[in-house]
Amino acid sequence: MRAGFQTAVALIYPPRCLGCGAQVESDFGLCGACWRDTPFIGGTVCDSCGIPLEGARDGHRVECDDCMQTPRPWRQGRAALLYADRARQLVLALKHGDRPDIARPAGVWLARAARPMLERETLIAPVPLHWTRLLRRRYNQAALLARALAAQTGAALCPDLLIRHRRTPMLDHASAGDRLTILAGAVSAHPRRRRRMAGRPVLLVDDVMTSGATLAACAAACHAGGAASVDVVVLARVAKDD
């Protein structure tokens, strides 16, 4: 009976591509054209921020120029996609287009990127939104991604591990230095959740990494809260223009 009902639903509401809306074979998928237009990250990447690098790995830690110049306050960082083409459209749809359904397949992509960083006691936590922004947007896209990642990996999840107790302005056009200044002290560990991360590795999840200032503020809060280590994973990494 269930199979018949699912078949009927599929006939009435056939699966649609997450990117363009074309009909596809299964739910939460991309059509061939959108898949080719989505820049998944693979191969050699910066161990700190996940941006793709040229050359093959030699068994040693590799970092991009930015991360060597400004060391990150976390151990490792990875990204599933480059913030370009169809990936940029998917991120914006998730963040501003009321498309929480995108989080489910994104959890699969995040799991693939984050798997080398996961440990048995890893605690997954999203980058927090200030309550006023959450009220307006109705959901935290980073929290949706963190939940989807936890479901894919079986790792523990603490959706309110961190609090953004000061509203900061939009950072889209701010320099890297200004972002760090604006975000200084804006995030802290939830006082009733600190015990959950004490002595444990924490994996922070966000939708996009640009300068890394937001993740740096969150990593600092985790270290202050007693985390044994902090890693980060994002759905998309903004690449600097050459």
Rank of each mutant, 00 (worst) to 15 (best):
M1Q: 09
A3K: 13
F5Q: 12
F5K: 11
F5R: 14
A8D: 09
V9K: 15
R16K: 13
C17E: 08
L18E: 15
C20V: 04
G21W: 11
G21C: 07
Q23K: 08
V24A: 05
S26N: 13
S26K: 14
D27F: 12
G29E: 14
L30E: 11
L30M: 13
L30G: 10
C31D: 11
C31N: 08
G32I: 02
G32P: 10
A33I: 10
R36V: 03
T38F: 02
P39Q: 03
I41M: 03
G42M: 05
C46N: 09
C46A: 10
D47C: 03
S48Q: 12
C49Q: 03
G50T: 02
P52Y: 00
E54L: 11
E54D: 13
G55M: 07
G55L: 08
A56H: 12
A56K: 14
G59W: 11
R61Y: 00
R61S: 08
V62T: 14
D65F: 00
M68F: 04
Q69S: 14
T70V: 14
P71N: 09
R75Y: 00
R75S: 11
R75K: 10
Q76N: 12
R78N: 10
R78A: 15
A80C: 07
L81W: 15
A84I: 03
D85A: 14
D85N: 14
R86C: 13
Q89P: 07
Q89N: 08
L90M: 13
L92T: 07
A93V: 10
L94T: 01
K95P: 12
K95W: 04
H96V: 01
D101V: 07
I102N: 04
P105N: 09
P105V: 00
P105Q: 06
G107R: 05
R112C: 04
R115G: 07
P116N: 03
P116I: 03
L118Q: 08
R120A: 15
R120D: 15
R120P: 11
E121N: 13
L123K: 04
P128E: 02
H130K: 09
H130A: 12
T132M: 12
R133F: 05
L134V: 07
L134D: 10
L134Q: 14
L135P: 02
R136C: 07
R136W: 12
R137T: 06
R137V: 04
R137N: 12
R138V: 09
R138K: 14
N140Y: 01
Q141D: 08
A142C: 10
A146H: 07
A146S: 07
A151I: 00
Q152S: 04
T153A: 06
A156E: 12
A156G: 08
P159G: 04
I163L: 15
R164Y: 08
R167N: 13
A174M: 15
A176R: 15
A176M: 11
G177K: 06
D178P: 06
T181G: 05
L183C: 08
A186W: 02
A189C: 15
R193Q: 15
A198F: 03
G199F: 09
G199N: 10
P201A: 10
L203G: 05
V205D: 01
D206R: 02
D207S: 02
T210D: 04
S211D: 11
G212Q: 02
A213N: 09
A213H: 04
A213K: 06
L215F: 05
A216R: 01
A216N: 05
C222N: 07
A224S: 13
A224E: 15
A228F: 01
V233K: 03
V233E: 03
V234G: 01
